[in-house]
Design a protein around this nucleic acid. Structure first.
Lengths: 158, 158
DNA sequence: CACAAATAGAACCAATACAGTACTGATTAG
DNA sequence: CTAATCAGTACTGTATTGGTTCTATTTGTG
């Protein structure tokens, strides 16, 4: 129901790779090969992540990217934020909602920040470190019934 | 960074209206007028909400919509889910990710459900009842510094 | 020094999804 | 019967996404 772009999706995949390669710089090409992703796309995403300060880059031959700080201090929110801009679930959720002509008649507006905050907190509680490990060590309240209800049903929203 | 569609946005607005009108059926036209929203859009959204079982509808003259159950038992997740389909942050987050050809090389896939779950939980913890009150009675950890960081910066992601 | 391997950055394009509209039909109160 | 109101489908213009291409710029290696 809520969607992040594929860019952010790939971004997380790539970051986990880099997290596992800890320290070792990886070239965009290497990562693309490893994950079977189109190189230009990988390149673009890594560039963005580097610009956001999540990755350090080394140009030239034998260059590549590596994490700018330990995986424990990078959250899902950081990565997604870097690739999709700041959290804003609706356009109204800004300080200067000039564009929102309905502001006067929109009494929910004050509640969006709460929802934003809730999601942001959720995303921030998940560290890259955690995501890099194949098995989830901390199952994060998973009631199997809920699980099917959420991850179970068809993918792309209709 | 994460976006819901405007449909879901309006959906929440409309649901809060109906929550406040408690019991009284409201026509699509009335709601559209009240919130200054385009009628066809309002109509479309209410239909979807009714189909999802969140609203009951009464056809014919003097008809309208009203909540199918008390506002306390309707969550933001319900509303958004009704309008955008089940929670699926990426297409991989499904049981049968047949389409995902990279599955073999995608080791994060197992972690998306966790993220989904985190967001879902966050959204479910916010009831329509809460959203219908102008002032937030439960500020849900709001550190003003964070607040600007999240709701502050420009709206629509670039 | 020259070359090759990398990243940096911008510009570009096609496909899709979104937001919104229009129209036609069904139901029901008065 | 008639007007009000919901139900459903199909359509359209625009914006966003996903992805490519091309041209620098940097830097290690022979």
């Amino acid at each position: 129901m809520i969607r992040i772009t594929r860019e952010a999706d790939y971004g997380i995949v790539l970051m986990t790779c880099l997290a596992r390669a800890d320290g070792q710089p990886c070239s965009a090409a290497a990562l693309a090969r490893q994950r079977r992703l189109p190189l230009p796309m990988v390149s673009k995403i890594l560039k963005a992540l580097a610009r956001a300060g999540l990755l350090n880059s080394q140009r030239g031959a034998q260059g590549g990217y590596h994490l700018a700080r330990p995986a424990v201090h990078i959250s899902a929110a950081d990565i997604i934020g870097a690739l999709e801009g700041p959290l804003a679930i609706t356009e109204c959720s800004t300080d200067m909602h000039d564009g929102c002509s309905r502001q006067d008649h929109c009494e929910v507006s004050s509640h969006w920040p709460r929802i934003n905050q809730a999601i942001y907190t959720a995303l921030q509680s998940i560290s890259l470190e955690e995501m890099s490990h194949p098995d989830s060590p901390r199952p994060l309240h998973f009631h199997s019934s809920q699980r099917t209800a959420i991850a179970g049903i068809a993918g792309r929203p209709v």
